[in-house]
Amino acid sequence: MPTKIEKDSVTGTETTGHEWDGIKELNNPLPKWWLYVFYACVLFSAVWMVLYPSVPYLRSHFGGVLGYTQRDAVAKRLEEASGAQAQYRDQIAKLDIQAVKADADLNRFALAGGRVLFAENCAPCHQSGGTGAKGYPSLADDDWLWGGKLEDIQMTLQHGVRSTNDDDTRVSQMPRFLADGLLTMPQIQAVAQHVLSLSGLDKPNADGAKLFAEQCASCHGEQGKGMREVGAPNLTDKIWLYGGDKAVVVQSIAYSRGGVMPAWAGRLDDATIKMLALYVHALGGGE
């Protein structure tokens, strides 16, 4: 509380009664127009309170007579945005995927949209940017199990790999050489050594080479270069989906591998699949 209100001798103005280290504050009056501006602001906020959401109740709030909400405003903007995308998506759905790639505008739209769609649908397994993980192939490299052309990628996306709910899915089954009694463990060891020697990771093994020609070459090829028709990986390159250690290779031969990818045709529309195929193709390894 101010205690000692006094009249300042120089200006004739009263002080507020506050004093700090001998410095006193003058109580100069504010101009009237300032007061009127303040009243105008009060009036403005009163009108605002009636028009827009303002007063909180216990469980809800007063929504304002205009019925405006930011949630609706965002929803409307999103609707407008997807409306603006429709013309591109319709075009992409209609055209052949090569024609989409040839059209600079559509291709740019597809790549930008594909990036987001990939993060939503594909990144959980293939990692962001198509980095890949053990058992989930890298999509950025130049090694393709089922083909790296645009049409191949589109086909894989539509029907999946070993998908149980799609009749046209890409399917093949490598035998479980040990479990099914086709080879004994020492034989498998020899084949594994031969497989690793194909990419210079181990010394050649004559027995293994012979067994490979008998048991494996029908799918992986005589040279071990793989066969995309059946998704058989190239065994001579430096890329190992499950790892390049001898133990891992032995495990693969003995008990087989068979990665699964869902068929997306029922879940994503045609335009979305094309956009994803274009995006994956542009990650760096597309053929």
Partner: peptide, 12 residues
């Protein structure tokens, strides 16, 4: 690029 940081190609 942050992902992938690098890509190993088939020829190593």
């Amino acid at each position: 690029d942050r992902a992938p940081l690098y890509v190993t190609l088939s020829d190593g």
